[in-house]
Simulated scan of single mutants.
Amino acid sequence: MKFEVTRNPSPLSDFDREAAISDPTFGSHFTDHQVVVVWEAGIGWHSAQVIPYGPILMDPSSAVLHYGQEVFEGIKAYRHEDGSIWTFRPEMNAARIQRSAKRMALPELPADVFIDSLHQLIAVDGDWVPKPEGEKTLYFRPFEIAAENFLGVRAAKRVEYRVIASPVGPYFVGGVKPISIWIALDSSRAGKHGTGEAKTGGNYAASLLAQQEGYDQGCSQVVFLDAETSTHVEELGGMNLFFIYKDGSVVTPGLDGTILRGITRDSLITLIRDRGIKITERKVTLDEVREGAKSGEIAEVLACGTAAVITPVGIFKSRDEEIVIGDNQPGELTVSLREELTGIQYGIVADRHNWMHKLAD
């Protein structure tokens, strides 16, 4: 698919751009351009463009506003020491947005168009990718929305795929410090046969009430239990969980349709197996976490996702209890895996699995 490029006539000045990327706040500044590709029933995908960043002209009856038919992704661009720009496992993001789209009755964007859209945006906004220091990156937000103007409960016949990008620093400020997690006892993120496995805004909206409760209690994230029994730990509002036991083995909650198929999660499973460490995907009960933390059987807990990469978890907290993991300090395996994964992403550790994809020299 050929992309038509219209340059922004008033891009941010070099001085202002450098100021924006020197100390970026997550999701606060955006690059000069965006990608747009249109889909229409009976025609398919067409009109691929790179255009100036700016507001979306949207009719008040646009379907996404009324029926929530939308999906999105998160993926980063990394500048290596030689100045080249890379991204991490984009084919996984392409496959996941296709699965999410299918679940939300949206058309599936071809994987090559997804990957090319990242190339196209970097071709005009490559200067926005920060230097490889302080874990700074350029964060892509690809998304797909129902863009037909109508009221009626059915799948939209016109859809837009867009990509915007924002320079970002660490998701959690203050270095690699354990975070506190609020246990959602009164709300669920996703139920059986629902949309839990889709990366769609409704799932995140459903997490915000509990997330706010967690903030009020001094927690950085919220963990959800399964909707059927409220006994099994599933995932955080935006990250997956791993439990490291004192015998060295690792457990992560299994995928059963209610948990997002995290790309960082999948990568960590591979890196852990590379080390000869036993890792199991299975159900993990809150009782097991409570008892394991108390006895010392659970030595470390980590949370992972594209935005935060890997962060240690020190405390699980609810209105009924506080569960402290280890000594509330970053665990050895957590720190080691974080160093390995970020090293691969920034080109300083060997990429044995060919995960990195070059976007620009």
Results as ranks from 00 to 15, higher is better:
residue 186 D to C: 02
residue 186 D to W: 00
residue 186 D to L: 01
residue 187 S to W: 03
residue 187 S to F: 01
residue 187 S to A: 13
residue 187 S to N: 07
residue 187 S to Q: 10
residue 188 S to W: 08
residue 189 R to P: 01
residue 189 R to L: 10
residue 189 R to F: 07
residue 189 R to W: 10
residue 189 R to D: 04
residue 189 R to G: 00
residue 189 R to S: 01
residue 190 A to G: 04
residue 190 A to P: 05
residue 190 A to T: 09
residue 190 A to V: 12
residue 191 G to Y: 10
residue 192 K to T: 15
residue 192 K to H: 11
residue 193 H to A: 15
residue 193 H to G: 10
residue 193 H to D: 14
residue 194 G to R: 07
residue 194 G to P: 02
residue 195 T to R: 02
residue 196 G to L: 11
residue 196 G to T: 11
residue 197 E to V: 13
residue 197 E to P: 08
residue 198 A to Q: 05
residue 198 A to K: 10
residue 199 K to R: 09
residue 199 K to Y: 07
residue 200 T to I: 05
residue 200 T to D: 01
residue 201 G to P: 00
residue 201 G to Q: 02
residue 201 G to D: 05
residue 201 G to F: 04
residue 202 G to F: 11
residue 202 G to W: 10
residue 202 G to R: 08
residue 202 G to N: 06
residue 203 N to C: 04
residue 203 N to F: 04
residue 204 Y to G: 00
residue 204 Y to T: 03
residue 205 A to C: 03
residue 205 A to I: 05
residue 205 A to S: 09
residue 207 S to L: 07
residue 207 S to V: 08
residue 208 L to A: 13
residue 209 L to K: 13
residue 210 A to R: 01
residue 210 A to W: 06
residue 211 Q to R: 09
residue 211 Q to S: 13
residue 211 Q to K: 11
residue 212 Q to I: 01
residue 212 Q to M: 08
residue 212 Q to S: 08
residue 212 Q to D: 09
residue 212 Q to H: 12
residue 213 E to N: 15
residue 213 E to K: 14
residue 214 G to D: 12
residue 215 Y to Q: 14
residue 215 Y to K: 15
residue 215 Y to V: 14
residue 216 D to W: 12
residue 216 D to Q: 15
residue 216 D to V: 09
residue 217 Q to M: 14
residue 217 Q to F: 07
residue 217 Q to G: 10
residue 217 Q to Y: 11
residue 218 G to H: 05
residue 219 C to T: 02
residue 219 C to R: 12
residue 219 C to P: 07
residue 219 C to L: 05
residue 220 S to D: 07
residue 220 S to W: 04
residue 220 S to Y: 05
residue 221 Q to E: 15
residue 223 V to H: 09
residue 223 V to Y: 08
residue 224 F to W: 00
residue 224 F to V: 05
residue 224 F to K: 05
residue 224 F to Q: 01
residue 225 L to H: 09
residue 225 L to F: 04
